[in-house]
Design a protein around this nucleic acid. Sequence first.
DNA 1: ACTTGTGCTGACGTCGACGTCAACTCGGAG
DNA 2: CTCCGAGTTGACGTCGACGTCAGCACAAGT
Lengths: 123, 123
Amino acid sequence: MRIGELARRSGLTTRALRYYESLGLLAARRTSNGQREYDEHDLRLVGEIRSLTGIGFALEDTRPFVQCLRDGHASGDSCPASVAVYRRKLAELDECVERLTAVRDQVRAQLEEAERRVKPCAR
Amino acid sequence: MRIGELARRSGLTTRALRYYESLGLLAARRTSNGQREYDEHDLRLVGEIRSLTGIGFALEDTRPFVQCLRDGHASGDSCPASVAVYRRKLAELDECVERLTAVRDQVRAQLEEAERRVKPCAR
DNA sequence: ACTTGTGCTGACGTCGACGTCAACTCGGAG
DNA sequence: CTCCGAGTTGACGTCGACGTCAGCACAAGT
């Protein structure tokens, strides 16, 4: 299949697919007239990229997963490098959740305090 | 005081201060030779900006707080517009925390699953 | 044959909050 | 006088993941 069909089937744009290729994340065979040619395996790779970026992974973080699939593994996270990314991301997320929760509580407190001042005795 | 001193005392860079001015967030008097001149009140405004951006508020979000201080209020969040920003931010944070928590749990689950596959019987 | 659709490459635009650099002026110290 | 530090404006660079446009070639459908 060519790039348009892969785009439709994967839910990405052709621009994104060419971009991934420019990063070396996705490799395409070329037909005699220079057009990119993909197969079902590529669709699988793109799907892996999508599902990971969809939950907030950076494109670079998806690289080990894609490589893992390329190496013949059944799933992208069956390689040590992928698992390492999972670990790192999990730590990042833990910290982020913690930080945001603290900020949220602080904002909530300031909001309540400000409301008390604006309408001191509303009821 | 001039921009250098305000930068030191506020913990910002001169570049940031000029940038804030270019956004109309901060106004400076000029001395006869064209240099920016600030006073303690400006330091207060800059402090308000800093404390808000420090917890993740966008610069534009600090505008109502700064305006509130300029209008003579004792604190930047004593105005309806500021409170509205609090509310909006709180909603954003709630959603963000929720989303990130879900993602974290998902990543955690995938990590555990992947580890089970990599070393199935380690002990 | 003609039009429409799809593909190609290359390059600039986007957003936010500044960093960095250039080229210049001014005031004060030695 | 000379030099340093601090000030000025203006403009371009940064990061990530593409969007958008220009200008071109080729393929398929009528």
